[in-house]
Simulated assay, not measured.
Amino acid sequence: MITTRALTKRFGRTVAVDAVDLRVREGDRYGLLGPNGSGKTTLVRMLLGLVYATSGEIEVLGRPVPRRIAEVLPQVGALVEGPGAYAHLSGRRNLALLDAAGRGGGRRTRQRRIEEALERVGLAKIDQRPVKAYSLGMRQRLGLAAALIRRPRLLVLDEPTNGLDPQGIREIRELLVDLNHDGTTVFLSSHLLAEVEQLCTRVGVVDRGRLVLEDALSALHTPTGRVLVATPDAAAAAAVLDGRVESRDGEALLVRHDDPAALNAWLVGSGVRVRSIRAERRTLEQVVLDVTGPGSDRFGEPG
Rank of each mutant, 00 (worst) to 15 (best):
M138P: 02
M138T: 06
M138V: 06
R139M: 09
R139F: 11
R139L: 08
Q140W: 10
Q140K: 10
Q140R: 12
Q140T: 11
R141H: 13
R141F: 12
R141T: 13
R141Y: 13
R141A: 13
L142S: 02
L142R: 03
L142Y: 03
L142T: 07
L144D: 06
L144E: 13
A145S: 11
A145T: 00
A145G: 11
A145M: 00
A146E: 08
A146I: 02
A146C: 06
L148I: 06
L148T: 13
I149P: 09
I149D: 10
I149Q: 11
R150G: 09
R150T: 01
R150Q: 07
R151T: 14
R151A: 14
P152E: 00
P152Q: 03
P152S: 04
P152D: 04
P152Y: 00
R153N: 11
R153V: 10
L154E: 08
L154Q: 08
L154G: 01
L154W: 02
L154C: 03
L155K: 07
L155E: 06
L155I: 01
V156Y: 00
V156T: 02
V156P: 02
V156W: 06
L157F: 04
L157Q: 05
L157W: 02
L157C: 08
L157G: 05
D158E: 03
E159I: 12
E159W: 11
E159R: 09
E159G: 07
P160Y: 01
P160L: 05
T161A: 15
T161Q: 14
N162I: 11
N162D: 11
N162H: 08
G163I: 03
G163Q: 07
G163C: 01
L164M: 09
L164Y: 12
L164G: 07
L164V: 00
L164S: 12
L164E: 11
D165E: 12
P166Q: 03
P166A: 07
P166G: 03
P166K: 13
P166F: 09
Q167R: 14
Q167V: 14
Q167I: 13
G168V: 05
G168F: 06
G168N: 07
I169V: 15
I169A: 02
I169K: 09
I169T: 02
I169N: 04
R170I: 14
E171Y: 10
E171F: 09
I172M: 12
I172R: 12
I172V: 15
I172Y: 07
I172Q: 04
I172L: 10
R173G: 04
R173A: 00
R173D: 07
R173P: 00
E174I: 02
E174Q: 14
E174C: 02
L175P: 08
L175C: 03
L176I: 05
L176R: 05
L176Y: 06
V177Q: 15
V177T: 15
V177K: 15
V177N: 10
D178A: 15
L179P: 12
L179D: 05
N180I: 13
N180R: 11
H181A: 15
D182C: 03
D182Q: 15
D182I: 01
D182A: 15
G183C: 07
G183Y: 01
G183W: 02
G183M: 02
